[in-house]
Computed example of a mutant assay.
Amino acid sequence: MRFMMTFHIADFFDTLVSLTTAFVFGALIGAERQFRLRTAGLRTNVLVAVGAAAFVDLAMAITDADGAVRVISYVVSGIGFLGAGVIMKEGMNVRGLNTAATLWGSAAVGCCAGADMIAQAGALTVFVLAGNTLLRPLVNAINRIPLDERSAEATYQVVLTANAAALGDLRDALTESLDKAHYPVAEIEVVARADNVVEIVATLVANTVRAGELDAVTGDLERLPGVRHVTWDASTSND
């Protein structure tokens, strides 16, 4: 049997280390995405990392470093197609770019693990997690900076994440709260997420808002029954 000729306990143990490393680090990245109810969550990021590690490890075993480099280039291209599947265009806005970039990072972690670069895989995992967590307050702070209306136009959205059972009442409560704050809603959309969770996305009519006022509205909404999280952001388009 060819299996007896190709099987070596040391090589098999090396493969297990690579795949286990990719699994653990991919799970860390995916857990953060799962917690935030993103399209590509825990299982997707784990499978991307483990798959990338398996391909690179296989190339290292049957060829050499040059062969692994070629496989890595194909992994990068393949993840590009996978990432495109989680990007959605909703009107003038594009959602899912951060999730697609995270999948790219998970693939890179897997490639490092498959190439037996365990420390590098761990360091890359830390940077990916930091980009998705530690930079979030900075992004929110930047979004709250008053915009120069002469150079940019902003579209403001309030996103309420809630249990699907409370959808009707919370959609009305969101609209009423924004109207009372003198921020009428131009469009409201419901996006279904996993595990009976929905996102209610309200696009505002106003071109500019006061950050403190929207913070107060989102704070009041977060205290309603069935609400998991409320946030707001601004997307701009320069002339």
Rank of each mutant, 00 (worst) to 15 (best):
R70I: 06
E90T: 13
F23C: 04
N45Y: 00
F55E: 03
A113I: 07
T63Y: 10
L167V: 11
A54P: 04
A40F: 03
Q157C: 09
L224H: 02
T231W: 05
V197S: 03
P225G: 04
V86G: 03
A173G: 06
A31R: 14
A84P: 06
V128S: 00
K89G: 12
V86M: 07
A123F: 02
L97M: 15
R136Q: 14
T15D: 06
Y183Q: 08
A234E: 03
L174E: 07
G80L: 14
S235R: 13
G30V: 11
A68G: 10
V48G: 01
A152E: 14
P225S: 07
V185P: 13
E199I: 00
A173N: 09
G67Q: 09
A152I: 15
A173I: 03
A31Q: 07
V158P: 12
R43K: 12
A192R: 11
V159N: 07
V185E: 10
V159R: 05
G41C: 07
T21F: 07
V198C: 10
L135N: 01
C112T: 01
D14W: 02
L58T: 13
T21S: 08
A53P: 07
V159C: 09
Q120D: 00
D220W: 00
C112P: 01
W104F: 12
L103R: 07
A154Q: 13
I142F: 11
N140E: 11
L37R: 11
E153V: 13
A152T: 15
S77G: 11
M88L: 15
D14N: 10
V71H: 06
S235N: 11
K180C: 04
V46L: 10
T15Y: 04
R228E: 02
N196E: 05
A84D: 02
V217R: 09
Y74Q: 15
I9K: 07
T6Y: 11
A59H: 08
G51N: 09
R223Q: 13
T6M: 04
R33S: 00
M60S: 13
R38G: 00
P146D: 01
A234R: 10
A181T: 10
S151G: 15
G85P: 10
R38C: 01
P225K: 08
A166W: 02
A40P: 04
P184D: 03
F25R: 02
H182S: 13
E90F: 04
G114T: 13
L42F: 15
A192K: 10
G67K: 13
V191M: 00
L42N: 00
C111H: 04
F127H: 05
S73K: 07
I145T: 14
W104D: 00
V139Q: 04
D11R: 11
N93C: 03
V86K: 11
I72Q: 04
L221G: 08
S77R: 11
D220G: 09
G131I: 08
F55Q: 05
G67D: 09
R2A: 13
T218G: 03
F13Q: 10
I142V: 15
R33Q: 05
G26D: 01
P146T: 12
R33V: 10
R210T: 09
G85Y: 13
A181F: 11
C112A: 14
V69M: 12
E176S: 05
R150P: 04
C112L: 14
D195K: 12
M92L: 11
V109A: 02
M88S: 09
V191S: 06
A234W: 02
M117Q: 06
A202N: 08
F13L: 15
I87R: 08
A192F: 11
